[in-house]
Every structure is written in structure tokens, then in C-alpha cells.
């Protein structure tokens, strides 16, 4: 199974939408890699710089509630994938974005607000994810672990490498 984790970047706001993650004007690209420079270009968040090294080095996004709301564009997942971000940890997700993540064999993990607050308070952290046992380890100034649950269907999609491979075999 794919390895999930890496340095985390915090996007400390609710309701970040997919237009902010990848603006519609870039949806005319016909390859995923062409999306790479435009990640989070229109994010409405004070102090955030889409060109920062912090974002370039990130492997995990940690954020608040209703992440990925708005448009159904899977480009919002692909733009993370081509920037080597394969995990988003949030208080909650918009339905289509969450499904798109698992459909691409990527990981959308929900943690309660209190856990997100703790990760945010740890400063710069590296995140390690054990998908089989549902454990997140955050290493920064200290080290903390958090349990998460994934339902079996989501786990099977990740193991199959996505929904297309799963569905092609089964239906």
C-alpha cells in the first residue's frame, strides 16, 4: 500500500472551496501535471503565500471544517497529488471532495476539532499515517498520536488504488 505522510501545512479556516484550491480558468488543462504551479492560488487566508517553501515542501494538509466545498472538480485533488500532497486531515469534508480523494487512492481523514487544535498548537510537524491501524503520529516540538476511523469501503478503495480499478474488477 502507498505510504501516506510528510511535513504538514496548516490552512486554518473553515469552508475552503475548490475554486480557491484550483481556479476554474485552469480547468482547460488536459493533464494533471500542468496544474502544479497553480495550487491554492486564490485561497482567501490572511498571511498565506501559495509560493511559499512551506507549501512546496508539504506532504499533508491540516485544516478545518467543510474542506473542499463547492465545485466537483477533481482537479482540486490532482493539484495536491502532483504537488506530492496525498493526505488532507480536516474536521470535516465536503462530500464530493472527500469521495474524489478516495477515488484517486488518496487519504481524507477526519479528526475532531480538539485534535486539530492540538496539531495546530504543535508548530511545525511531520505527520506519519498508519492506514491499517488508523493511527496518525504528529512529530514536532513533541510527539502525539491520534486515532482515526476509516470505513472498510474507503480502505478497500485505497488498497485497490482507486475506484476505477475497484469498479472495473467488481461490476
Amino acid at each position: 500500500m502507498k505510504q501516506f505522510g510528510g511535513p504538514a501545512i496548516f490552512l486554518d479556516r473553515n469552508d475552503i472551496n475548490t475554486d480557491e484550491i484550483i481556479p476554474a480558468k485552469y480547468l482547460t488543462e488536459n493533464s494533471k501535471t500542468a496544474l502544479k504551479p497553480f495550487i491554492l492560488e486564490d485561497l482567501h487566508l490572511e498571511g498565506f503565500d501559495p509560493q511559499s517553501d512551506e507549501l512546496k515542501n508539504a506532504g499533508v494538509i491540516v485544516t478545518r471544517a467543510n474542506f473542499g466545498c463547492g465545485s466537483s472538480r477533481e482537479h482540486a485533488v490532482w493539484v495536491f497529488e502532483v504537488n506530492d500532497i496525498n493526505v488532507v486531515i480536516a474536521e470535516s469534508f465536503a462530500r464530493i471532495f472527500r469521495q474524489n480523494m478516495f477515488n484517486c487512492g488518496m487519504l481524507a481523514v477526519e479528526l475532531p476539532k480538539e485534535d486539530i487544535d492540538i496539531i495546530l498548537s504543535m508548530g511545525n510537524v511531520d505527520i506519519d499515517i498508519d492506514v491499517t491501524n488508523g493511527v496518525i503520529t504528529a512529530k514536532g516540538a513533541g510527539e502525539k498520536t491520534f486515532n482515526f476511523t476509516l470505513n472498510d469501503f474507503a480502505r478497500e478503495l485505497i488498497q485497490a488504488g482507486g475506484w476505477l480499478a475497484y469498479a472495473d474488477k467488481k461490476y
Binding site: E74, R95, N100, G162, L164, D168, Y171
Partner: peptide, 20 residues
């Protein structure tokens, strides 16, 4: 319901889609 491109691929190919 709106869906992403992978769901669309499966829809085109198999005529099915997964929902809660």
C-alpha cells in the same frame, strides 16, 4: 448528484456510482 472525474469514468464505463 455532482461527482468527480473518476466517478464519471466509472459511470461512463459501468453505469454505476457509489453513494452513502
Amino acid at each position: 448528484a455532482g461527482i468527480g472525474t473518476t466517478d464519471l469514468e466509472v459511470g461512463i464505463l459501468k453505469g454505476v456510482c457509489a453513494f452513502k
